[in-house]
Design a protein around this nucleic acid. Structure first.
Length: 283
DNA sequence: ACCCAGGGGCAAG
DNA sequence: CTTGCCCATGGG
């Protein structure tokens, strides 16, 4: 049943869900099944409209259908790498995730491939999350629920060394040592510093949470893929690249929607690389 | 048998 | 400020 229609111009649902910002949606029928907070949601795209069984207002907000995409594209720098990424990713949006599940998921993302992050998320949800209907789907487990577990419990979910960090952070949140709601009102730098107090959260993970959960569309996470893109297309020939210099460059060059630019460059680089690999195998 | 993945933390230059 | 090393686990 998908009784509600939502106008969704300049939007590509499949691209958005497959771009490595959220990890629990799965293809079902002609659309996708997932969870927004504590609400099970089915959504499918037909042309410039979404059809969903959930609240249209909630769906439109989650997928950030109010972001002015045309205006965002006008702020992108004009260079070949950015142009190729835009051409490849047109219609992708930076969605608005609940802060805790975004934070926890990116703590588990350290040195992991996208497919395995999804696997970990699924295991945590099914083992320790609340069932939102008989047999699922499941909400992401609350900080309180995870805080009551042992490190061994989490290691049994294939978390490896990340188990310690997730447990520590869950306890810090459950004890109100860090207040995720209060961060919403802070300026970018203060919010980032506050997030970095949590176990397993450094600059990269903090920027992911700022971008994907706190609507800080300027936040620019630098992971191995983005660093590769920067070296190849923006710092060619330079042997030594100071980390701080790289951060300053990204903060200024990509402009007020730098987080969008980053996500387009990231997804394009990842998919292009996979295509290159399969091409290499065929020849 | 390798190599790499949406890193962080800590010690040592 | 920087580099080096360790931390687990799965996919290619």
């Amino acid at each position: 049943m998908t009784p509600h229609a939502v106008a969704a111009p300049d939007f590509n649902l499949a691209l958005t869900l497959g771009s490595g910002q959220v990890f629990h949606w799965r293809a079902e029928g002609a659309g996708y099944a997932g969870v927004i907070g504590a609400t099970p949601v089915y959504v499918e795209q037909r042309g410039a409209r979404l059809f969903t069984d959930a609240s249209p207002v909630m769906v439109a907000r989650y997928f950030a259908l109010d972001h002015p995409l045309a205006e965002i594209y006008r702020t992108f720098p004009e260079d070949p790498a950015m142009a190729a990424a835009l051409d490849f990713c047109r219609g992708m949006r930076i969605i608005r995730q609940p802060a805790w599940e975004c934070l926890a998921t990116f703590i588990t993302s350290s040195m992991k491939q996208v497919s395995h992050i999804a696997q970990i998320s699924h295991t945590l949800r099914t083992r320790y999350g609340n069932a939102l209907a008989p047999g699922g789907p499941f909400a992401y487990p609350t900080p309180e629920r995870l805080a009551a577990l042992t490190e061994a419990d989490l290691r049994a979910c294939a978390l490896g060394y990340r188990a310690r960090n997730l447990l520590k952070t869950a306890r810090m949140i459950a004890e109100s040592e860090v207040d995720l709601d209060a961060i919403r009102a802070m300026p970018d730098d203060a919010a980032r510093a506050e997030l970095c107090r949590l176990a397993g959260v450094g600059e990269k993970v903090a920027n992911c949470v700022l971008l994907f959960a706190y609507e800080r569309v300027r936040a620019f996470p630098i992971d191995v893929w983005i660093e590769r893109v920067l070296r190849e297309h923006y710092f060619q020939g330079k042997r030594k690249i100071i980390a701080g210099r790289l951060r300053d460059f990204c903060a200024t060059y990509f402009g007020e929607y730098g987080g969008y630019a980053q996500q387009y460059l990231f997804h394009h680089a990842r998919k292009k690389s996979r295509k290159d690999e399969s091409r290499k195998q065929r020849t």
